[in-house]
Design a protein around this nucleic acid. Structure first.
Length: 481
DNA sequence: CCTGGAGTTGTCCTA
DNA sequence: TTAGGACAACTCCAG
């Protein structure tokens, strides 16, 4: 090892373990670890509120494992990074690749200018199992259907890289006159001014150690029975790793091989393990779609949907956002999002279908609300999933697949545990009326201390009629062009 | 080259 | 009560 200073630019890889770029940096010299909050280049997808809350705690955790030496800046990395290189006399900059279109163009520009200035730039794959440009059909074009993408494109490709240990030794640069550590993190102003966020700290152990604890807890207690159990929002059968993966507090490689090992040990049924692995495949698929179709966050992948008869109704949108639709399973889900920064996968499908098909409001509204509220807000996953549920995406849900907001609740929250947790107004109803309070006889409502229209809303839309209207709107698309 | 089968997550109607 | 089919169109791939 030389005494040279090299920069590791942390982005969506807020961990020490299995961090290929950080390892490369540590092998080369004294490492100056840097994070830059970039609100300049992200366009309309500047980080949302929940993301900022998570980032604050994630940086705090990372900084602690870096001996309070994390350099923290805010601004345009196109300017800040070259300045920093010059200031500390760095010979090289290392980072792990990010795949959002705006980051790709920003990073390419930075790489070109640093390289031109004689600085070595080294980028690695730290956040995907397979590079999007490596998983292609035989004709060289990207897949648009998940199953062949995963089974043929991914599973017959060379296996993902095995996880790497944290760099050892990791010698940090102590260059003075830099904004570092907890003080610098606080200076970013990532936490909300009041209240909201405090309760999230009770739910999430943000950071690398929390990510590992979440993974091992899931493998030990959630993976067996995953395939069926993952459909029930009240059950603890989902991994809840999405945020940790998004921020790179754990790598997909660590998750992939840990789950593989469980499978090989016979610690869970094959179908549960395989199904969980395929969910990591869906994450890969979303990233591949975003890489090959950079307009994915706003533009319908199927152009015929450009003619769809969306409605415009800010009041209905507000009621959906607040969890005041009058459909308890929808409202429970929307309140879970607001209260925890997370929503169960089944719930995401239910509220998505309700927004775009029953309320017939544009999926952009759902995408934007999730972007602001989710601690796992991820441009690839969020965009691809909203297009999927709206029916306009790749391998999308067929247009006639419209979730019934009553039967979905009855089927996937049969004992009402989820609804009662998040919609206490209806908690006193017997199970038979829990998903459709308006069908309860007056004496049952009275017994549950529920006054419809006062203590809890009546349905803001008729599920059956709005379903018919959605089908008609989709049918109208076929006559266009 | 053509052809047939299959494809994350649903609902409703009919027999 | 329950099981099966209809609801589109397209992508992908194996034969």
């Amino acid at each position: 090892m030389t005494g040279e200073t090299v920069i590791h630019w942390f982005r969506q890889d807020l961990r020490l373990a299995d961090n290929p770029a950080l390892r490369a940096a540590a092998a080369q010299g004294k490492v100056l670890p840097v994070y830059i909050l970039d609100d300049v280049n992200a366009g309309i997808h500047k980080m949302g509120g929940a993301s900022r809350w998570w980032l604050h705690h994630s940086l705090t955790s990372l900084n602690a494992s870096l001996d309070n030496k994390l350099v923290v800046l805010a601004g345009d990395p196109r300017e800040l990074l070259p300045q920093l290189v010059q200031q500390v006399g760095a010979k090289a900059v290392h980072w792990n690749r990010a795949y959002e279109p705006w980051r790709i163009s920003r990073d390419s520009a930075i790489k070109a200018s640093l390289t031109a200035a004689g600085i070595t730039v080294d980028s690695s794959n730290g956040s995907l199992l397979w590079e999007p440009w490596e998983v292609l059909k035989n004709d060289g074009t990207p897949y648009r259907v998940f199953t062949p993408f995963y089974r043929r494109g991914c599973l017959t490709a060379p296996p993902p890289r095995q996880p790497l240990p944290a760099p050892d030794p990791l010698v940090l640069s102590t260059h003075p006159d830099l904004a570092r550590g907890d003080t610098a993190i606080a200076g970013l102003g990532l936490l909300p001014d009041h209240g909201w966020g405090d309760s999230l700290s009770d739910i999430w152990a943000v950071g690398e150690a929390g990510a590992r604890a979440q993974l091992s807890g899931f493998l030990d207690h959630g993976l067996a029975g995953y395939k069926a159990g993952r459909n029930f929002p009240a059950r603890r059968n989902v991994s809840r790793l999405s945020a940790y993966l998004h921020w790179g507090e754990i790598s997909p490689n660590m998750v992939w091989y840990a789950a593989q090992q469980h499978l090989q040990n016979g610690a869970c049924p094959d179908q549960d393990g395989d199904h969980f692995l395929s969910e990591l495949g869906w994450r890969e698929f979303s990233h591949s779609l975003l890489y090959h179709f950079p307009d994915l966050p706003r533009k319908n992948l199927q152009p015929r949907f450009d003619h769809f008869a969306w409605r415009d109704d800010p009041q209905l949108l507000a009621k959906w956002q607040k969890g005041m639709t009058g459909y308890p399973i929808v409202d429970a889900a929307m309140r879970e999002l607001w209260q925890t920064g997370y929503m169960h996968n089944r719930s995401r499908m239910i509220v998505g279908s309700f927004l775009v098909k029953n309320l017939r409001l544009h999926w952009h509204h759902g995408e934007a609300w999730f972007w602001d509220c989710l601690v796992d807000a991820d441009l690839a996953n969020n965009s691809a999933s909203w297009q999927w549920i709206a029916g306009c995406g790749a391998d999308a849900a067929p247009y006639f697949r419209i979730f019934n907001p009553i039967t979905q609740g009855e089927k996937f929250d049969p004992d009402g545990a989820y609804i009662r947790r998040y919609v206490p107004e209806v908690a006193g109803l017997p199970d038979a009326y829990l998903c459709s309070p308006w069908t309860a006889p007056a004496e049952v409502l009275a017994g549950a201390n529920l006054r419809l229209g006062e203590t809890y809303p009546r349905p803001i839309i008729d599920a059956k009629q709005s379903r018919e209207a959605a089908l008609a709107a989709f049918a109208a698309l076929k006559t266009v062009e």
